[in-house]
């Protein structure tokens, strides 16, 4: 699974990445992580409110930092 965290390295992005890593390891998902900080690419995924979470090139969440449990609910059907 390829996971991208969209945002400018703000606190929210760091929190989102942490929650996502926790969720992925709880589900036993083997994932590669990538940070996307380039404005044009962020908007290219349809995100206008950072942070954003992209899983296998599909935007699954934007504009808020979820808890690890919530990310698990998002990732489980995609695994």
């Amino acid at each position: 699974m390829n996971i991208k965290i969209l945002g400018h390295g703000c606190q929210n992005c760091a929190n989102l990445e942490k929650a996502t890593r926790e969720a992925a390891s709880a589900l036993g998902i083997d994932a590669t992580y990538e940070k996307v900080t380039d404005d044009a690419s962020i908007v290219g995924y349809g995100v206008m409110r950072t942070p954003g979470l992209v899983v296998d090139e599909k935007l699954v969440l934007s504009g808020r930092v979820p808890t690890a449990d919530q990310v698990q609910e998002l990732l489980a059907p995609l695994a």
């Binding site: 044009a40 908007v43 995924y45 349809g46 935007l59």
Partner: peptide
């Protein structure tokens, strides 16, 4: 200039 060249891709998730 890059602003005008940005392609709005993908579907938008309306939160």
């Amino acid at each position: 200039p890059f602003v005008f060249e940005t392609k709005l891709g993908g579907q938008t998730v309306d939160p």
